[in-house]
């Protein structure tokens, strides 16, 4: 009948709560509060047990907790290692603090805001929206906000069907896949094009309903170009209030793009010659200066790099003897005819 009796070896059992209480580490009110949590979830939240109690907890639980914290730190570090994106990082820190405090508040039975974490990501392609979403999913999992924290990506073509009723069904399928994690809808504004009769509206309605029905299991992120997203939200006033978190992804500066290029090359174990470096910098500066929203940002950098790597391969493949250094070096000629194309 008791939840704690069913789950084999939950992190903290009622007996442990009693032990802590007998040692004078919990007040009766705190003990009851823990009982209630145990009863509801079969688990006692980690934030709740005073640090002095840790030695009494079983080693395995400590490991789990440490492992969880390590994974959280890892995800955080990965986010921080992304180049640029300072406003995004700041906001993620804010969200993280907000979640932690709301969890503490609800543990103390203070009025806590329900955690509504649906988000709008606004920014040009290649500014890191998907990457950030994926990292957020992992962080939310380790923070106990989402059970699984995986990312399901989709776009209009995945959601909108061909006949009446088809759209709702397809949208629900994607939502079902995303339960426990994040549903990431790229170019979400396209769901609103085509006017009243378009099936996109049906997809939005289905999504909004699912967001209510699966409040604790789903975070929806709508992503797209800044201007189009603004327009999309202004034509669907109900949506804005349902997505309280808006994150702007600014375009990368030429310097940031160059840093990204270096990072990509380092990961692939290539390096640029001095001449190639100068050429790439110049190339990126002209591209970033164009302020064309389609110029692709980080994706453009990746395309340039990958093309240069292929060109280097063509250049080297005919040579009889290739040194290790040559294998790693990208010369100016490899960037030669690369254009933003």
């Amino acid at each position: 009948m008791h939840a704690m009796a069913m789950s084999p070896g939950p992190p903290h059992t009622a007996e442990e709560v009693l032990d802590l209480f007998e040692q004078g580490k919990l007040s009766p009110a705190e003990a009851f509060s823990l009982f209630r949590r145990l009863h509801q979830t079969g688990k006692v939240p980690a934030v709740h047990v005073p640090a002095a109690a840790a030695p009494r907890a079983k080693a395995r639980e400590e490991d789990d907790e440490a492992e969880r914290r390590r994974r959280l730190q890892e995800a955080e570090a990965e986010l921080m290692s992304l180049i640029g994106l300072d406003p995004v990082k700041r906001l993620v820190k804010e969200i993280q603090a907000y979640i932690a405090i709301q969890q503490r508040r609800s543990a103390e039975r203070l009025v806590s805001e329900p955690l509504v974490l649906h988000m709008i990501f606004k920014g040009n392609p290649g500014t890191g929206k998907t990457t950030v979403a994926r990292i957020l999913g992992r962080m939310f999992k380790e923070m106990g906000v989402l059970p699984k924290g995986h990312l399901v990506e989709c776009e209009r073509a995945d959601l909108v069907g061909e006949y009446i009723g088809h759209t709702a069904q397809r949208t629900r399928e994607h939502i079902k896949k995303a339960l426990g994690g994040i549903l990431f809808i790229d170019e979400a504004y396209s769901l609103a094009r085509g006017g009243e009769k378009d099936f996109g509206k049906e997809a939005i309605d289905t999504l909004v309903k699912a967001m209510e029905d699966h409040k604790d299991q789903l975070i929806a992120i709508l992503a797209g170009y800044q201007r189009e997203m603004e327009h999309f939200l202004s034509t669907n006033p109900g949506l804005r209030s349902r997505f309280p978190i808006h994150i702007d992804f600014p375009d990368y500066s030429a310097d940031e793009l160059l840093q990204i290029a270096h990072l990509m090359l380092r990961k692939r174990e290539y390096r640029l010659s001095a001449a190639a470096r100068a050429k790439l910098a110049a190339l990126l500066r002209t591209e970033a200066g164009k302020a064309d929203p389609n110029f692709g940002n980080a994706r453009l950098v990746r395309n340039i790099i990958e093309r240069a790597i292929r060109r280097q391969a063509v250049r080297l493949v005919r040579k009889a003897r290739i040194s290790r250094d040559e294998l790693m070096l990208i010369e100016e000629v490899d960037l030669g005819e690369v254009s933003a194309g």
Partner: peptide, 23 residues
């Protein structure tokens, strides 16, 4: 039951018994 953590061990033990009994 008390509001705070009782100082005396005997009272804490008795109270722990109450907590266990409630469950």
């Amino acid at each position: 039951l008390s509001e705070g953590i009782p100082r005396e061990t005997a009272i804490r033990r008795a109270m722990a018994q109450t907590l266990a009994a409630v469950r």
